[in-house]
Write a protein that binds this DNA or RNA. Structure first.
Lengths: 149, 149
DNA sequence: GACACTTGTTTGGTACGTCAAACATAAGGC
DNA sequence: GCCTTATGTTTGACGTACCAAACAAGTGTC
């Protein structure tokens, strides 16, 4: 019972992860650039909070800012976004398509844990999902059989 | 992208969950009773922190304290501990026995998410694990096949 | 009874993440 | 040019969760 402190030790907080995701989302429509108020709107928090939080993200080297306050993900930040999105997607797919958890609930749960899943676990889950959608007839059968279990 | 605030909205924090688990653990050897310093030792935090955190747990109705500062889980608190332990166990088993994630990593990951998993998701995961260890020959085959995938 | 030790609480400090409100710029409308 | 609005930052506050250190109260030993 010593493991429990790993939670706080996590380098990527839930808040930070979603700030990065928001920058990514907003940036999609503006060539990768995002403004503080757009990020705030995306996250439903105040501009002040975003402004403060961006300081930390900048310090971490996850985002860059230009002289007009425009924000964009650094290469490092892009990588974080990629891995978080990938983890969320695979968890959501597992919950929804394998466990048959209702989609809204799958969305909530995957969102909660996306930044907490370790790389090995994420990878294994990817392999597992890949196996389940592979040509292996066994895989398809299992999904069907479990649905009626 | 509105779901993300559910994280903070969680009624049960990681810290609170582990305080309750610690009280349970310590209580096992003392008829359900735990002292502040034993809880602190179990969690590797200071007595002061535990003392403060217990106020919140008492207010939530999860623990009771007697006139000698002895702490025990309320029925409500016991229920919380049961569900958290169950979720952690099933997640850990899934990661370790199905995904073949190394045990230490499975321990860390399940510990991080134990308090975040919704009841429906937890239930479905239980059913899934039950299916995989059922007599259904398909289940066993899948586990073996995935190992060599 | 006096001293040390253990235990629980309190206090002041830090870090994170939020808010509201005040503020400074910067645009836009006319 | 002036007024309004939008935008970004800063400030003071709150809640959570930790620490170290001071303190109070009980326990033990001699």
């Amino acid at each position: 019972m010593e493991t429990w402190k790993e939670f706080e030790a996590n380098e990527l907080t839930h808040s930070a992860a979603h700030h990065l995701l928001a920058i990514y989302e907003v940036g999609l429509e503006y060539g990768g650039w995002a403004r503080v108020s757009d990020i705030a709107r995306e996250l439903s928090i105040t501009r002040g909070s975003v402004s403060i939080n961006l300081r930390a993200l900048r310090k971490r080297g996850w985002v860059d800012t230009d002289e007009y306050h425009m924000v964009k993900l650094s290469p490092k930040g892009q990588k974080v976004v990629q891995t978080v999105m990938a983890k969320k997607a695979v968890v959501k797919a597992f919950l929804s398509n394998v466990l048959n958890v209702p989609k809204p609930q799958a969305e909530i749960d995957s969102c909660k844990v996306e930044h907490l899943i370790s790389q090995p676990t994420g990878e294994q889950l990817v392999y597992f999902m890949r196996f389940l959608v592979s040509d292996d007839p066994l895989a398809k059968q299992v999904l069907v059989r479990f649905k009626s279990f």
